[in-house]
Design a protein around this nucleic acid. Structure first.
Lengths: 220, 220
DNA sequence: GTGTGCCGGATTACATACAATCGTACGTGA
DNA sequence: TCACGTACGATTGTATGTAATCCGGCACAC
């Protein structure tokens, strides 16, 4: 959890972002070693911020730090990814049920806007990077609105590694359409103030995602 | 989550432990500022390991780091503590249900041993520090045995701040006895292989704890 | 042939020096 | 008297130098 609310990109923030992106895009393979000095020179910063960025990535579960041996990108098995989604299946519908009666007008507008943007994005060009970011913000809206910080923290702790590791890349066209449909239904249910409905949709949404993330993709 | 498996106390590990203890014991008040240079001099190390220890504490949710303003011990409201337990109410029974059919003989012996130790400790002298540690290990057994690392990580992320912040100090004698009784019942249910029973006991156990942690203590 | 001990290269862990940033207090002007 | 701008002090952010640690390979004994 990044507790520093840095708005301007410091060296640490920049390094963290770059490394995070590289891992997400598969630019660096899971299992590969990350050398402090090499990264520092490559990104034009000193070793100190690189060091701190690596520790933050370790706290997020993206890399493992071995004493005196440096950092290594973690590799998740399909079973572990499924486990992450299983936790989300439990927590996110609960957060949704809590969030629905607490949404204000601005919050409802925000999730509606995000849902529409994502739908357009799928119809257009399939910018998966941007789609992933919008999706993250969409789900974050529910977590923030639920008013239970601990619940939000629990989900975030579990989601980050899974979300960053090649999400959406294995979605078929049909699965992607279905996912967007869930988003839109969530907005309608939230506007209706029907917590039970919204919660159920969220549960369905995460279960479908688990299936997609777990099953071996047929066509690359 | 401490990903570095350091066995010998490095400067970072030592600093982290010391600060963690101080916060747990209430030696440093919530809201008080933690200055890197002061801590470094006090603990006889340089600022670098202090800095890293503070970031780890921030990742654990024990302190907040403000950019260019240093670290500050977080203060939880009763509502936030209740929220933490609410998440535990959801997750720990689930972990328990998964763990029961997966326990081996050694695991069952371990939780039985821990439950007995805790019971004796309550009858004897009330070493709350040690009781808290045993309790942590007891719950950890179920989280490890459940086989879902993400689930364990989610619970850990939520529990750590609450656990470190003076738990057990507000337990009455009766509540403490009841808590120990739950532990023993969990062992019996686990030995019987009854996941549903064990899960229910765990749920009761956490709900009771939430009540104790939330209600204003009558006698200090 | 296998196991053990030692040495060298590489890399991190820590210490310290310097630069940038923020908060605060004071002084000035309206 | 209050608002605003500015300068100073305190503290963190970054860079770099030094020491400790670990892994791999090789020689040697059994």
């Amino acid at each position: 959890m990044s507790t520093t609310g840095a708005r301007r990109p410091d060296a640490v923030q920049l390094t963290y972002q770059r490394l995070s992106d590289r891992i997400a895009s598969g630019d660096v393979q899971p299992g590969s070693r990350l050398k402090e000095s090499a990264l520092a020179e490559e990104l034009g910063v000193s070793r100190t911020p690189v060091r701190e960025a690596l520790r933050r990535l370790a706290a997020d579960g993206l890399v493992e730090v071995h004493p005196n041996r440096g950092a290594q990108v973690v590799a998740y098995t399909p079973a572990e990814v499924a486990d992450m989604f299983t936790v989300r299946v439990t927590l996110e519908p609960q957060a949704t049920a809590l969030a629905v009666p607490r949404f204000d007008a601005a919050g409802l507008d925000e999730i509606e806007d995000l849902a529409e943007q994502m739908t357009r994005l799928v119809d257009d060009g399939r910018d998966l990077q941007r789609l992933g970011e919008l999706n993250r913000r969409f789900h974050e809206c529910f977590l923030v609105a639920c008013g239970n910080k601990a619940l939000a923290a629990a989900v975030t702790a579990v989601v980050r590694p899974a979300v960053v590791h090649r999400t959406f890349h294995r979605y078929s066209g049909e699965a992607l359409e279905r996912s967007m449909s869930h988003h839109r239904e969530l907005v309608v249910a939230a506007r209706a103030g029907d917590a039970e409905w919204a919660s159920s949709v969220m549960r369905t949404h995460v279960l479908a995602a688990r299936h997609t993330a777990t099953v071996r993709p047929s066509a690359p």
